[in-house]
Design a protein around this nucleic acid. Structure first.
Lengths: 187, 187
DNA sequence: AGCTAAATATGATACCTATCATGTAAATGT
DNA sequence: ACATTTACATGATAGGTATCATATTTAGCT
């Protein structure tokens, strides 16, 4: 059953969106091609009409989701608050693709690594732009340091099974970033 | 072929050590039971004499390697320098088990999560002890913030394919941590 | 309207891997 | 020294999944 050109484009988008959520939720390996297709409302057979392999899907999903993710634009404090919230920790499927997928990228194809590299570059820039009060060198250092701490904290908080400690990791990281930024800018 | 009791204990240690390196290097899913046994100098058949399942191996390997990893005891600056070095980034198989494995823990069994929780708790304590100049509240905040940034930076640095950006992530995170600690302690 | 090409569905195929079954030889206790 | 237990080796088994082959339906063009 052939479908219209726009229908096909929408199907492709749905596949990418479904893959994006599933990968963030369960990891690349734990998600099968058939599962992605089913979540997109299709069957597994049509998959290779859209992508040349599962690795290709992974790379394209990353490019898709990292390009779409333009968070972190405005107020860094507000962004960090949301990022380091229990709500975000508990919502991996809909949350930051970097926090959900970076660690796995190491084992993926060069195309996937390239997409993540681009994503990281623009995220650092975005966070830097949210720190206009700093001079350029401080700004870049703060952007990278904050981002590393934010991603690290969410990954740690998601890994452990003690809710109190998990909350504390988020909360203290938020405070630590806060003092770091304030003190550099007040210098 | 039965082996002596001590030989068996050593075999078990070898399995855990081999598993630890392989898991850090390639991730839990990408390493087969047979591969671990082979790396330990055995064949796959004996595996279930030591462990009840692959999940059991994962949990026990985590407990083993996180208990053994007593790094971060002395000087925090020196520790951060080594941790955030290209050498450590490029040596996942022999490097920090947290950096190599945390992100995957989310998809593992409760036993594995429990082991990681314990590991995180003691690591925070160890880093805290390396900051005696701070009062308790600052100390805990700094320990958690630093650790999140260190783990996050190594994970990010390992994910991307641009060596210059990767080096910069490590370097800037190091500097960011450094200024953070200095400024809190000089307060 | 009719033809053709293309998008998806259904149905293999082949491989990998966790786990189990059985054999074997050596260690341990008597 | 012997019997027994047991750690490990060799050799299935079974289930999952990426990928391919073929069929079907219909969009898009003439």
């Amino acid at each position: 059953m052939k479908v219209s050109r726009e229908q096909m484009a929408e199907n492709r988008r749905r596949i990418l969106d479904a893959a994006s959520r599933l990968f963030r939720d369960k990891g690349f390996d734990a998600v099968s091609v058939a599962e992605v297709m089913k979540a997109a409302g299709l069957t597994h057979g049509g998959f290779y009409g859209h992508f040349s392999s599962k690795d290709d899907l992974i790379a394209q999903t990353l490019a898709h989701v990292l390009a779409a993710d333009s968070s972190g634009g405005g107020d860094l404090r507000a962004y960090a608050d949301a990022y380091l919230s229990p709500r975000h920790r508990d919502n991996a499927a809909g949350g930051c693709p970097t926090a959900g997928l970076v660690a796995d990228i190491r084992h993926q194809t060069p195309a996937a690594r390239a997409a993540m590299t681009e994503g990281l570059r623009s995220q650092i820039d975005r966070i830097g732009k949210a720190l206009p009060e700093l001079d350029p060198a401080d700004r870049r250092r703060a952007a990278i340091g904050c981002w590393a701490a934010m991603v690290g904290a969410v990954i740690l908080a998601r890994a452990i099974d003690d809710p109190a400690l998990s909350d504390e990791v988020l909360e203290q990281t938020r405070a630590w970033i806060d003092t770091g930024i304030s003190q550099v800018s007040a210098r």
